[in-house]
Amino acid sequence: MPADKQPYPSVWTRPQRPRREQPPLSRGQIVSAALELLDAQGIDALSMRKLGTRLNAGATSMYTHVANKDELIELVVDKVYGEVEVPSADDPAGWRAAITRCARSMRATLLRHPWIVSVQGEVGVAYLGPNVMRQNEAILAVFEQGGFTLEAADRALNTVVAYVIGVSTSEAAWLTTLARSGKSEQEWAESLWPTAEKAARDYPRLGKLYAAQRNQNMSATRDAEFDSGLECILDGLAARFAPQEVRHSS
């Protein structure tokens, strides 16, 4: 199908080309190599030429599976989402516990691959990838098991995912900066403290918050803040959408 006839320029909407013989490289090999390159060097390092060199393969072998770099990124993003723990609607601990574990797993996955946050809004129709669809179907089932209607479950899914991606985007940027500096979080915080203290001099509330955070474990604080924010999200979703008897039992 010509590119201009595609309903949307995405690897998920383009029919697969018929192959008369087995290509020297599989799609899985290409995607795995691209993921290794992205994790090691970041999004700016990815190119079809560099990937071909890494795989010792020519362009023809690559383009058998993907039409361009954008399609390749779609495939890699879906592979990353395959690492997220899929929640179970039959979780005996209840829907909140299942969604909490999934959200924590999603955050951890995104932070293992910090380059991904820079392409989240540019990845075509990523929601059509099989791993993303499997994840979303499972999350919808969990919310339905918790008493949400399907429409409410969809809103809840979008709200939780938006929260996780929003927090993870800021964290990934922070951790990337740290990695480039060669400092630990604690070392960075201590070196930044005099500047932050001076900047907050005329802002007493901020100054009080900064002072309280100075000697805390930065990684543990980020974990606690994520969990606290997620609890607020789930409280709001329960109050808005869950039946009262389910709300109290979960």
Rank of each mutant, 00 (worst) to 15 (best):
K50D: 14
A33V: 09
K5W: 09
V11R: 12
T53A: 13
A34D: 07
R54I: 04
G42S: 11
R54M: 15
V31K: 00
P15M: 03
P2G: 10
A3R: 15
V11G: 10
L38M: 08
I43C: 08
L38S: 10
P23Q: 01
T53C: 05
Q16L: 14
S47Y: 07
P23G: 02
K50P: 00
G42H: 04
A59P: 07
A34E: 04
E36Q: 07
Q22W: 03
A33G: 03
R54H: 14
M62R: 08
D44E: 15
D39N: 15
M62W: 06
L25I: 06
V31Y: 05
W12T: 01
M62A: 08
Q22A: 09
T60G: 13
L35E: 11
D44T: 12
S47Q: 03
S61C: 04
R20M: 07
G58Y: 07
I43D: 08
L51M: 10
R19A: 08
A57G: 02
R54V: 07
P23A: 01
S26L: 00
S32G: 14
G42D: 09
G28M: 05
M62G: 05
K5Y: 10
I30E: 00
T53K: 10
A33I: 00
L25C: 06
V11K: 13
E36F: 02
T60N: 13
S47H: 07
P7E: 12
W12Q: 06
M62Q: 13
R14D: 01
A40K: 15
Q29E: 11
S47N: 13
I30A: 04
L37F: 06
L25A: 05
D4W: 12
P23I: 04
A3W: 09
R19K: 12
E36D: 10
R19N: 03
A45R: 01
Q6L: 15
Q29R: 12
R27H: 11
W12P: 07
R20P: 03
Y63S: 00
A59G: 04
V11N: 06
W12G: 01
M1Y: 08
K5C: 09
P7F: 02
L51T: 00
I30D: 00
S26M: 00
A40V: 13
P2A: 08
W12D: 00
T60E: 10
G58M: 04
Y8Q: 06
Q6H: 10
A33K: 05
G28Q: 14
L38C: 02
I43S: 09
P24E: 11
R54Q: 14
L37E: 13
T13F: 14
